[in-house]
């Protein structure tokens, strides 16, 4: 019996992280980047910002639908312990605080009282520390990279604004990484579907 075999924290962490194997959170972030780029394109062709903002629903529902109809039927359902539940509750509270604090800024952008790039910059800088704390509580390490990419994309879009103008700055700075992240997520999803076939095991009680 090795030391590793006795480390229950590792067993728990491994089991919890296996729920991220499906790639849905990666797809969610990829789509989030793509939606930001798409909003910029829609604004250029004079389609209302409100139409664009409704697209944010897509990245929100992707993991929920994916987990319900693809992941759980293939991998099986699991309910984690109290410590994990507590972490999840903390993440939810932080998420609610982020929404509460950033909503006024979002409303200012929608009402065009803040210029697009400046508004997004404030929004991202404001949300980032709380966002990182929320990421820590979920133990999904790849989000650290995506959070870093989001900061880089905001800076890049500002830099490219003078060079390329709108919406090409957003397409390059948000659309391109969004596409790459989505492809990574889809790749993970394909592997997951191949590794976990739908007709999984059924428990048959033994004759005693």
């Amino acid at each position: 019996m090795t030391k590793d075999a006795l480390s229950l924290k590792d067993v728990e962490r491994q089991a919890y992280r296996s729920t991220f194997k499906d790639g849905f959170y990666d797809i969610q972030f990829g789509v989030l980047f793509l939606v930001i780029a798409l909003i910029s394109v829609l604004e250029t062709i004079n389609i209302s910002r409100f139409v664009g903002y409704t697209l944010f629903v897509i990245p929100l529902i992707i993991p929920w639908l994916g987990k319900k109809y693809i992941t759980i039927p293939r991998m099986g359902a699991v309910e984690f312990g109290k410590a994990r539940k507590m972490k999840k509750q903390v993440a939810l509270i932080i998420g609610a605080i982020v929404i509460f604090l950033t909503l006024p800024i979002l409303l200012l952008i929608v009402n065009q009282n803040l210029s697009g790039v400046l508004g997004w910059k404030i929004l991202v800088i404001f949300a980032m520390p709380l966002f990182v704390i929320a990421v820590y509580t979920t133990d999904f390490l790849r989000i650290y990279i995506y959070a870093g990419l989001l900061i880089a994309a905001v800076a890049e879009s500002e830099f490219l604004l003078d060079l390329l103008g709108t919406p090409f700055n957003a397409i390059f700075s948000f659309g391109l990484p969004g596409l790459i992240i989505s492809v990574i997520g889809i790749n993970l999803l394909i592997k997951f579907v191949q590794n976990y076939p739908r007709n999984g095991a059924v428990y048959v009680e033994q004759q005693r």
């Binding site: 728990e12 089991a15 099986g76 359902a77 699991v78 309910e79 984690f80 999984g200 095991a201």
Partner: peptide, 11 residues
């Protein structure tokens, strides 16, 4: 380490 798990998850 969990509250409960489905048979499929354990497998």
């Amino acid at each position: 380490v969990v509250e409960q798990a489905e048979y499929l998850f354990i497998q």
